[in-house]
Design a protein around this nucleic acid. Structure first.
Lengths: 143, 143
DNA sequence: AGGTAATATTTGCTATGCTAATTATTCGTA
DNA sequence: TACGAATAATTAGCATAGCAAATATTACCT
């Protein structure tokens, strides 16, 4: 492998991930979703898994605790989620969707899928498998 | 493709890119490089391409202008780069390495390669080609 | 029980990423 | 040549991302 190939691949990976996120974000905005991509991620997981502790949620969506704290702060400000005291551990909060949050998820779910589609046009099932395998290999190499 | 596969792939891409960057950053820190991964990217390109206008550089490394402005601000603060007036266009600056910056690049270059290696262990040449193809497809789908 | 280690969350700080707006300058054209 | 459009860089504002430190609480251990 030539001098800089690893660097080049790192950059390619980085810029592609950024563009995927940026495209989704821009579509979210154009379509008036009124949440960011990361906020959506939190909402969706809360919808699918019911309420949960913040640190469990953080693990689930691959964010660190400070980042998640801030995302949830914003979602609470928007009245889409709420924190309730953990029944037996006063260090913890349980995070859950409000009614409004639940409605939001139900209305956005199908639309988000359409937004996400575009990135993957022209790729075969085999491509997807290979892609997944490689990404996981890289991820695990650095774990 | 099932309901959420596209979302799942987007997340996989995102988390892998983040881990690759974070790993490099952490190694940079441990090894005392004293620059961030993005700052390094700028230094390296300036080294390989001589001086250049900021917007050309931004294009080259896939950053937007505000981001590059700030990175260069930091590099100038560290005395690794400097801005000089463009000879014929007073809107532009030319950015270039200082002597210290040049020395920095020369000393770090081989070390950075070693840091980058680790992510790609266990992948074949064929994997790399497929990976590149897929990333570029995605990137171009959204361009 | 008492003291220390571990855990959950938050806060602070720095850096990046994106958008929009601002400033300064240059270009294109009527 | 004067004026509006385009360009280069910056600034401002918001949202992550990551690290370290602070806070509050619980668990463990002898």
């Amino acid at each position: 492998m030539s001098e800089d190939s690893y660097n080049a691949y790192s950059l390619l990976l980085d810029r592609t991930a950024r563009r995927v996120k940026q495209y989704a974000q821009q579509q979210f905005k154009e379509l008036g979703f009124n949440v960011t991509v990361d906020q959506w991620l939190v909402l969706k997981h809360l919808y699918e898994n019911e309420e949960m502790k913040q640190n469990v949620l953080a693990e689930l969506i691959n964010k660190d605790n400070p980042t998640l704290t801030r995302i949830i702060d914003l979602l609470c400000k928007k009245k889409l989620t709420e924190r309730v005291l953990h029944p037996s551990d006063r260090r913890s909060f349980i995070v859950r969707l409000t009614k409004e949050g639940t409605k939001k998820v139900e209305s956005l779910r199908p639309k988000v899928r359409n937004v996400r589609l575009k990135a993957w046009e022209g790729l075969s099932g085999k491509d997807f498998n290979t892609f997944k395998k490689i990404l996981n290999t890289i991820y695990n190499n650095l774990g």
